Amino acid sequence: MTQSFLEHVNVTVADADHSAALLVNLFDWHIRWSGPARDGGYTVHVGTADQYLAVYQPREGQSHDFPKGVPLNHLAVVVEDLDAVEAKVVTQGLTPFNHGDYEPGRRFYFFDNNGIEFEVVSYS
């Protein structure tokens, strides 16, 4: 029997290249693909070989408000070195908050420039 796993999450952003660059910087991911997307938009797939985040940028003049995608609480990313990633978040001008140090791991949260909330967690 094949085990199920989450392949990707797709979110709408103002600037796909900017969002992808932030994710590459924070989590040491890579750009898997980029190109034209639905309704004349543009998408960048950024992540690992097995999983990725699709950041979708609507075409110029198109609304960023899509009824799908609501509600989105947050996206969680597991990292080895929580402190190192938090330092990167701060250098990007973003504000970490809601730090938690409880079983089974440590974590903090931040909002990116699009208002997407990320949880960063380490189980090390």
Rank of each mutant, 00 (worst) to 15 (best):
D15G: 12
A16T: 00
A16F: 11
A16M: 02
D17A: 13
D17F: 08
D17E: 12
H18S: 14
H18P: 04
S19L: 01
A20D: 03
L22K: 09
L23H: 14
N25V: 04
N25Y: 15
L26D: 06
W29T: 04
W29R: 00
I31N: 03
R32K: 15
R32D: 11
W33V: 02
S34H: 13
G35Q: 11
P36Q: 11
A37W: 15
R38D: 14
V44M: 02
H45L: 15
V46S: 10
D50P: 04
Q51W: 01
Y52W: 13
Q57K: 06
Q57N: 06
R59M: 04
R59A: 15
E60C: 01
G61I: 07
G61F: 09
S63P: 13
H64V: 08
P67S: 11
P67H: 03
K68S: 12
V70K: 14
V70L: 15
N73G: 12
N73K: 10
H74M: 09
H74C: 11
L75Y: 09
L75E: 01
L75A: 04
V77K: 09
E80K: 13
E80D: 15
D81F: 02
D81Q: 13
V85P: 04
E86R: 15
V90R: 13
V90Q: 10
G93N: 12
L94W: 13
L94V: 15
T95F: 02
P96T: 01
F97V: 06
F97D: 07
N98H: 12
H99R: 06
H99S: 05
Y102A: 15
P104D: 07
G105F: 08
G105D: 02
R106F: 03
R106L: 03
R107C: 14
F108L: 08
F110L: 14
D112Q: 10
D112M: 12
I116V: 15
E119N: 09
V120I: 09
Y123S: 07
